[in-house]
Amino acid sequence: MKQSAFRKGATGIACFFTCLFFLAVGTLLLILKPSELLKALLSAEMLYSMKLSLLTASISTLAVMFFSIPTAYSLSRFDFSGKSLVRSILGLPMAFPELVLGLSLLLLFGQTPLGSGLEALGLRVPFSKLGIGVAQFFVAFPYAVRVIYSTFEGIDCRYEQVSRSFGYGDFETFRNVTLPMARGGLFASAVITFARCIGAFGAVLILAGGSYMYTEVLPVTLYLNISYGNLEMAITSGVLLMGIAFLAILCFEHFEGEKS
C-alpha cells in the first residue's frame, strides 16, 4: 500500500527527533570510560548524594501519595464550592518555573508566621534537609494528583454505589473497592512521583540551598560539579538521574499498556 506524503513526513519527524535525543543521551553515556564512571560512583560525595536523594525522594513520594489520593478522590467524586478553583491552583505548579516555586516556598517558610511557627517546633524548612523534602513534595504533588485523578475518573462510580448498597460506608467502599481497582494507576503515579522528586532541582536549590555534602542531592551534585568543572562527577550524576527516569518511564509504559 502506498503511503501518503503526510504520513511519511510525520513519521520522518518522529524518527529524526528520536535519533537526536538518542544521540544526546548516548553522548552522556559514551564520554566516560567505565572505570571513570565507577570511580565517580564510589566517591564519598556521590554516595552521600545518592543516599540523600533516595531517602528524601522515598519519603516525599510516600507523603505525596498519602495526600494526593484523598485530594484526587475528592476532586473526582465530590462536589463542593470552589472545586474548579482548587483544581486550577493545585495544577499551577506544573506550569510554574521550578525556581519561582522554590522562591515562593522560601518566602512561605522563611518570612511568614507559618515558617517561624514550624521553627519554634524544631522544624526548620529553609536551607535544611527538610527543605529538600518540602520542595520535592510541592514539585511532585500536582503531577500525582493529575494521574490519580484520571485513574479515579476511569473507575465507574457505580462500583462504589453497588458496594454502598450492600451496607458499606464511604470509607469502607473506598478501601475495599476503589483503591484495589485503582492500584495500577496508583503504582504509575508513585513511579512518576518518585522520578519527579529525585529529579527536582530548581525548587530544591532555592529552598534547601545547594550545600556540599549537606543538602546535596543528585541534581545539585550535577550542578555543583559542572560549576567546578568536574565533568566526571557531573556526568555520573547525570547518568544516574537518567537511569532512574528511564526505569520510571518503563514502569509507567508497562502500566499504560496493561490498562489499554
Binding site: R158, Q161, V162, R164, S165, F166, G167, Y168, G169
Partner: peptide
C-alpha cells in the same frame, strides 16, 4: 444507600 437494604443489578 447502605441503610436501605435494596440491591441493584446492572
Amino acid at each position: 444507600p447502605d441503610k436501605r437494604q435494596i440491591s441493584i443489578v446492572y
